[in-house]
């Protein structure tokens, strides 16, 4: 739905052929400059975009999780997204004749989400702004969850958002794994990094130096985090 800095890094590194999204910015800061460069100038390679609005994305993930061919919603009428995205169509309600928008179900090959806790069996508990993560997991062929910690007992009250281990392919403990975003109850968003990203990603050479040093030059997430901490500035 909302590609963030990690998507910007993937796009700038030339790993992305197509982006399906509904809002692409650096939240509270401004643009995702690598996304913009790819769309505006085709650098480092042209990117295909399939653009929706949030409600359409949500309906498509819900449809995927429900094994329906498409998601359905009111809306999109009269807007220009319909002209450019051929995957937004309109159907007539068979009962009332109402005109409704239809979006093909999202069925990701792999969904990766970050949550707070898992127990030793691999059941996952998440809370706070859960967004569309449950639907994205259940819509996918495979799902990987990273968590802040693995505990003996989730102590989850009824109605909690729990992803049982048997719908997941892998659960990995990755402390700080939401970085530079936040994990509710664990740490806040690293706002300095979001601001620094605006500078890093604005210029191709600065971006290239950054990704060579901190991402391609490190062997795992822990080393990546240490590499960033060791830098005098985020750049």
């Amino acid at each position: 739905m909302t590609p963030d800095l990690i998507y910007d890094q993937l796009i700038g590194a030339g790993c992305v052929k197509k982006l399906v999204f509904s809002w692409g910015g650096n939240p509270g800061v401004g643009s995702l400059h690598r996304l913009r460069d790819a769309v505006e100038n085709g650098w480092p390679q042209p990117i295909e975009i399939e653009e929706h609005a949030h409600a359409g994305m949500a309906a498509a993930y819900s449809a995927g999780a429900s094994n329906l061919p498409f998601g359905m919603l009111r809306g999109y009428v009269g807007t220009d997204l319909v002209k450019y995205n051929q995957r937004i169509k309109f159907i007539d309600c068979p009962f009332t004749g109402a005109k409704l928008a239809a979006i093909p179900a999202h069925r990701p090959d792999v969904t990766v989400v970050h949550a707070q806790k898992a127990d030793r069996k691999g059941n996952v508990l998440m809370w706070g702004v859960v967004g569309v993560q449950k639907e994205a997991v259940l819509a996918a062929k495979r799902a990987i969850v990273t968590v802040e910690e693995i505990v003996d007992d989730l102590h989850s009250p009824p109605n909690s958002v729990v992803l049982p281990s048997w719908v997941l392919s892998a659960v990995c403990e990755v402390k700080g794994g939401a970085f530079p975003s936040y994990a509710q109850g664990y740490y806040q968003r690293d706002n300095a990094f979001y601001k620094a990203w605006d500078f890093i990603a604005r210029d191709r050479a600065t971006f290239q130096t950054w990704i060579d040093r901190h991402v391609l030059g490190t062997k795992d997430f822990a080393e990546y985090k240490r590499s960033l901490e060791g830098a005098t500035s985020h750049a």
Partner: peptide
């Protein structure tokens, strides 16, 4: 132009449906 934009902005997010509903 949408296919060759001068400036690519973030997009609708929820604006389209907020405006509608």
């Amino acid at each position: 132009d949408y296919n060759k934009p001068k400036v690519r902005l973030p997009g609708s997010g929820g604006a389209q449906e907020i405006a509608g509903f």
